[in-house]
Write a protein that binds this DNA or RNA. Structure first.
Length: 219
DNA sequence: CACATGATCGCCT
DNA sequence: GGCGATCATGTGG
């Protein structure tokens, strides 16, 4: 029994066309995972529900590099029913259930068969929204009403879940190791977490963590 | 502010 | 059987 998607928080209602937002092309998501993770800072993650758009501006992401990345669910080529969406073409959604109570959403990257993804860790709602509402991967899913029932959906054509390109100028981007992957050996310290330096909605108080050695190529 | 802990269960070993 | 890509709450400084 899969928990159904829930209604999004009404405070997240917005109008993509009023903001002049445009969608991505498939090729963008097939590209380098680290670049996609950086580029998604400032993008809007949106859901069309009951005739209205709900969404938030992404302010924190993490890159997961697949077969060579001990922190990734697809590490070593692991391929189970849960992880299967990570093997799809770039631009699909991968949602997983953690700690018996939370959901986390990822944007799948690279071409079909290469299981890499970008975890959406935090976002800012429309003006006036409390900064903590979407500050953390599970809160982000809860606020938008996303569950594992949406895992595997296509973010480009299928319909109710979409990504829109950033329109404002490039944000100042901070980099640190990823959160909550201390078990992952040397991958633990890879600098693969990206966040908007000027956003109050970035999760935790972990901006200052030391960065490890350079990230490996995600290609 | 900085930890520490409990909740709660699917997934993998 | 153990643990996790988390969060809210509680304690102490």
């Amino acid at each position: 029994m899969e928990r159904e998607a829930a209604a999004p928080d009404p405070r997240l209602r917005f109008a993509p066309e009023a903001l002049g937002l445009r969608e991505y092309r498939r090729a963008f998501f097939r590209g380098d995972t680290i670049k996609v993770a950086r580029s998604l800072i400032g993008a809007w993650f949106a859901r069309f529900y009951d005739g209205e758009w709900y969404g938030a501006r992404i302010v924190e992401t993490e890159a997961y590099l697949g077969i060579t990345d001990a922190a990734a669910h697809s590490y070593g080529g692991r391929r189970t029913a849960r992880v299967e969406p990570m093997y799809r073409d770039g631009g699909h959604l991968y949602v997983f259930f953690v700690y018996g109570m939370h959901y986390c959403a990822n944007v799948v990257t690279r071409p079909e068969g290469i299981a890499q993804a970008v975890l959406l860790r935090a976002a800012e709602g429309p003006p006036g929204t409390p900064p903590r509402l979407l500050s953390g991967p599970a809160r982000l899913c809860a606020a938008l009403g996303i569950t594992a029932a949406s895992s595997g959906e296509d973010l480009l054509v299928s319909g109710d879940l979409r990504l829109f390109r950033r329109r404002a100028r490039r944000p100042r981007i901070g980099v640190t190791p990823r959160i909550g992957v201390d078990y992952a050996g040397e991958a633990r310290d890879w600098p693969l977490r990206f966040f908007d330096e000027d956003s109050p909605a970035v999760s935790g108080s972990v901006r200052l963590r030391a960065t490890g050695p350079a990230a490996p190529s995600s290609a």
